[in-house]
Design a protein around this nucleic acid. Sequence first.
DNA 1: GGGTTTTTATTGACTCGTCAATCAATGAAA
DNA 2: TTTCATTGATTGACGAGTCAATAAAAACCC
Lengths: 193, 193
Amino acid sequence: MPKLGMEPIRRAALVDATITEIGKSGTLDVTVSQIAKRAGMSSALAHHYFGSKEQIFIAAMRHTLSLYGAGVRGALAMAQGPRGRIEAVIRAGFSTTNFRREVVAAWLNFYVLAQTNAEARALLLIYQNRMRSNLVHDLRQLVGDRAEGAAERIAGLIDGLYLREALGREIPSGEDATRQVLEALDLEIGAAQ
Amino acid sequence: MPKLGMEPIRRAALVDATITEIGKSGTLDVTVSQIAKRAGMSSALAHHYFGSKEQIFIAAMRHTLSLYGAGVRGALAMAQGPRGRIEAVIRAGFSTTNFRREVVAAWLNFYVLAQTNAEARALLLIYQNRMRSNLVHDLRQLVGDRAEGAAERIAGLIDGLYLREALGREIPSGEDATRQVLEALDLEIGAAQ
DNA sequence: GGGTTTTTATTGACTCGTCAATCAATGAAA
DNA sequence: TTTCATTGATTGACGAGTCAATAAAAACCC
């Protein structure tokens, strides 16, 4: 019963299943069979479309990053003024889409992978640079030449709280984390007056 | 040629080798044989002393945490006043002992493990609570009832910069990270005046 | 002290599972 | 009849954990 044009559907299903399975196990130590089963196909088919397990992971990372990017762009589109734009970037990161257990688990493992895998590292750098440039651009207007340092601190705080919240509670609360980052942001702004 | 009393020596060698190997590979996916070989013994002996691979890892984590704790205590002993004590805690975390590639790699993998392994999570919570209580205690005298929030932000920033520095550069620079956290600390203090 | 037994240290060889990747085979559209 | 979709079965490698065997120190016994 081969319906044509299955490839993109299968790929998408595998990517989703990968995130879910990583979330379930917490590790990259999930088997292709597990992923394939959750995606409703045989492991052979998964290999057929992606070639290797590593490629499945990279695709899943790409997808996660692109979801995150879309969230940020969406939030930025609605934002008013520099402070509003920064707030948008912060909120997007801790939104319920990007701040679920599975997604955090995936991120954690991206970090681990990025230590050795060039492709993973490149993706992470893209994310980090985008974050930095977003922050610096708007901070410039708020804190002048303190912008670079402030951006580094805000970005670091986001990453750190992301990590901490994710491990600390059963259900991560983006609300608390967001509040903390906004507080730090206001300290940065206040200090420049 | 069995010299007696080898057990502690072997255990220590295995713990060291574990950190080194995790640092080399970036993952917990190192084989017991690799670790044992680096520690100068057979894998059978490693199993003899630790029982399982997981136990070897836990022991390595314990060791890393205890080194960190010792560093913090040492720095605190020399510190003057609340602001000096906080600075000591920050500097200890980014000191060259605790801020090497292998150690960061180990930490990253602890985080991954802590998602699912109760023992790992317990160890991480100990570290986090110690950090929080250190910070809150001294911040109280500097920023009053803003202490809790400030501690959360400082701790989050430390964790985040730890992560970022470790991935960003070939050789992580504790100097830059320390400067950033101290700057954030001064913002917190300044805001309370 | 000399002999025997227990304890500790140590490893090579082996078992048993698991899993990524491949392949040959099947079926259905084009 | 070519091309796409799909899978069960298989291969081949690797790796955790076990075991039996060796050796030497120590403890015990007369």
